[in-house]
Design a protein around this nucleic acid. Structure first.
Lengths: 212, 212
DNA sequence: CGGAAAAAATGACCACGGTCGATTTTTATG
DNA sequence: CATAAAAATCGACCGTGGTCATTTTTTCCG
């Protein structure tokens, strides 16, 4: 029966991940060897490579799982009537707080996510598309409400917000933005993006400028 | 005389870089071993580590040098009377074209630049500050001309553009944006940033909307 | 110049990530 | 159940990045 084999594989995969996360957290990513990790998971070293192509892929898979879960949760429970600025800040701040829980994890994950190896492209694109599918309805609603310009493509808007999120994380790594300042910084950034960097040519005080 | 020793060190450093770049280009970064590289530079393996802490630091130092040079050139020759959109696109596109000349180099460089290891923080910040010092006058002039809102901090504006640049590079890696489309994409992105994602509350046709 | 001290160069060495052919386990089939 | 094919497991093995004790070179100073 192929179901049994499949179940066992899943179990092994879980065991590897679990052992990996425990050890990576305890001793750090670099200091944990594959051999050690395999022993902790109760398998041989070579077996690990039947499940993950590289060491950092184990970490990446874990982070992706966690974020996937978080995103589902957030976009499902989103109150779509709230201003788009608030919604975007909430979504990306959740992602930020999650990812920055462990600096080393975050670095490896972000490096691979933002600038993926060619081998990972397929998987990467699939995940991204998946994410877009969650974000698009929210942005579309905002367009309908008149909060976002209708002539802009959803992909471009998503990209704009995502770019600013990348900046936030990058600035956090370089120590320019502390964890406590992150929300304010992201809000400023997103507000800037919405209002525009150039002066409004008109009365812009009628908008929800000061609703923070 | 300590001048002689110093000169020799510089010469060795140059030799390492030169050999590294030749080999990395020919055979790829991963496929080039430090031993091999050292031989090509006419020195012993261990000596390399007296000049660069890790293998990828050799590559990173090279890229940083090249970009530093490019930036100096560009910001010096900038025509500060041209619209800020054009100027920013020109600067970041030059950076983009340079960095994407070699995909492997680009990946390693961007990964380390956007999400640097703690060990590299000091050097990283110094370089960034240096870059800001080149960008700020340009943005300041644009503020004075009324092209950028005066109440925004220069650092935030820089960050905004830089974030969108990060997005461009990331999208290039994932194959969402081809090299030939990059300039148009970046222009769109920057224009979006200037005009704002939300609808202008007024007549926005008087601006230089269609000057491309 | 002599020789001690500091700096730099070196390659044997180590630990680890990843590979691979041999071996075991599971599945499919008559 | 027998047996062959397929899948999964394994650890010895390889090449490499990075370290370090030792050696060589340079500097300094009487």
């Amino acid at each position: 029966m192929s179901g049994l084999r499949e179940a066992k594989k899943q179990e092994t995969r879980r065991a590897i991940m679990q052992a990996a996360m425990r050890l990576f957290s305890e001793k750090g990513f670099e200091k944990t060897s594959i051999e050690e990790l395999a022993r902790a998971a109760g398998i041989g070293k070579g077996t690990v490579y039947g499940y993950f192509p590289t060491k950092s892929d184990i970490l990446h898979a874990f982070c992706e799982d966690e974020l996937e879960c978080l995103r589902q949760e957030l976009t499902a429970n989103a109150d779509q009537e709230v201003p788009i600025l608030t919604q975007m800040v909430r979504i990306y701040m959740a992602e930020f707080m999650k990812i920055t829980e462990n600096r080393e994890f975050a670095r490896i994950f972000m490096q691979q996510t933002a600038f993926p190896r060619d081998v990972d492209l397929q998987r990467h694109l699939a995940h991204e598309d998946n994410y877009f599918a969650l974000l698009f309805p929210i942005l579309e609603k905002a367009q309908e409400r008149g909060e976002l310009r209708r002539e802009l493509e959803l992909l471009h808007i998503t990209g704009h917000f995502y770019g600013l999120y990348l900046l936030l994380v990058s600035a956090w790594f370089s120590g320019r933005i502390a964890t406590e300042e992150a929300e304010e910084a992201l809000t400023d950034l997103f507000r800037q993006a919405l209002e525009g960097l150039q002066p409004q040519k008109t009365l812009n005080s009628i908008t929800d400028n000061g609703n923070e």
